[in-house]
Design a binder for these strands. Sequence first.
RNA 1: GGUCCCAUCGUCUAGUGGUUAGGACGCCGGCCUCUCACGUCGGUAACAUGGGUUCGAAUCCCAUUGGGACCA
Length: 472
Amino acid sequence: MDPIVTRFAPSPTGYLHVGGARTALFNWLYARHTGGRFILRIEDTDTVRSTKESVEAIFQALQWLEIDWDEGPYFQSQRTDIYQTYAKRLFESGHAYYCTCSPEAVEEMRRKAMATGANPRYDGTCRDKGLGPRPGAVLRFRSPATGTTVLDDVVKGGIAFQNTELDDFVLVRSDGTPTYNFVVVVDDITMGINTIIRGDDHVMNTPKQIQIYRALEATLPVFAHVPMVLGPDRTRLSKRHGAMSVTAYRDMGYLPEAFINYLVRLGWSCGDQEFFTRAELIEKFSLENIGRSAGIFDLAKLQALNADHIQALSPEALVPHLAPILAQKGLVPDTVPSLPRVIATLQPRSKTLEEMADQARFYFDETVDYDPAAVKKVFKPAVVEPLRQLVAELEKLDTFTEAGLEAAFVAVMEATGLKLGKIAQPVRLALTGRTASPGIFETIEALGRTKTMDRLRRALDFLDGMEGQTGA
RNA sequence: GGUCCCAUCGUCUAGUGGUUAGGACGCCGGCCUCUCACGUCGGUAACAUGGGUUCGAAUCCCAUUGGGACCA
């Protein structure tokens, strides 16, 4: 059996959006799953809307998602010779003809057709005139007048289109530029694409494309039209629904593994399994289990999956993903004894890396600001003595390890008769400025001796000041 | 307007003629507990509607409704 060859063919008219990313992902996964090849092609024939920046943005997004390609990127703008060759072939074999009808005349035909309730279409005025190439003429495809064209889609099943619905559509415009349906087919044939996985917004193009394949006597590829991704209001995902750009999710602290896991699971299933590593996705992905109905993008589910992936990775593996977000917030890793240790304390309490960075702030800052409400609730005169004793106990420790720290706390608990909570909360406030944080022992260990002792002493000073005030 | 596609909890889905219709996210509650989380246990909630076919339909067929896509 021939190896599977798939492709992703975005138009560089903006960033890579969620729907595009999913299409890319499906093609990439299927190629990797079958041991085939994955080709990247940039469809930049729309020279007005295509930009170099968009091409760059697409590369960046694919890189973040770790979707690599085996061939390309090809640029349609550099392949005009090829399209001309194929246009000529279609003309010479009689599958296409030149048409000199003016745009106004064609518009008139449409109006007439509409008036009779029929589909607006070209009426075939030039179809049998036998015109040759000439300036200002368009090249039209000679569509079959009768019968049906059947699309045998892997996910949708068989779809029959009446050929009477097909127009004698334009292949090459009067200015010599080829049209979308034509270049796509020529590219897919010449690049050896045998499996086309794309959004189902393309199904209506497919019968035309199938006709071109036939006219060119090329083997039809396997078609798989995957349902679209919709916004919460069930309309096509757009800016209104928030972040569209894939890289925006990177910046918001989502892991590429989580993002692809979510995107693939949206519209594809493998029994009840929800969590997939990249390797599992490659191993288990198949066209057969793609669903037929559109899916709604649900940020809450993405978040939950992201939390799972954050927990599944080692702290060390998280470092490169978290580092840029920390940097963006002005938090420099050198100011902390061990970044992986800090990460380890926050893993079970972060849905995104951005949340993690925010929660990590107190580890990095020079000092902490106390939350006023927490001060009122926790910094009571009664905590001064236990805190003093704790400082004394901690000073006895050679190194700060969780076991040693716990022993120090236990010593204070026994001396004062207090429960752990009564001591941990003031310590937590002293160290973090708030009443919620990771476990107190792991927090101290990750914070390090210097900052811990500084902050405990500062808290005692602060409490001193409070007593002076109330006493006065 | 024409053509095409789709239809199970709010959302993602399992299910392919016989199930108490399962799982996940979310939400609610219990437990765990040094706080917040994690975890864990339980609860909430669905086969769009109407006809058929069949001993029996979420499952097969038709219609209706609703949603979406493309072309204009």
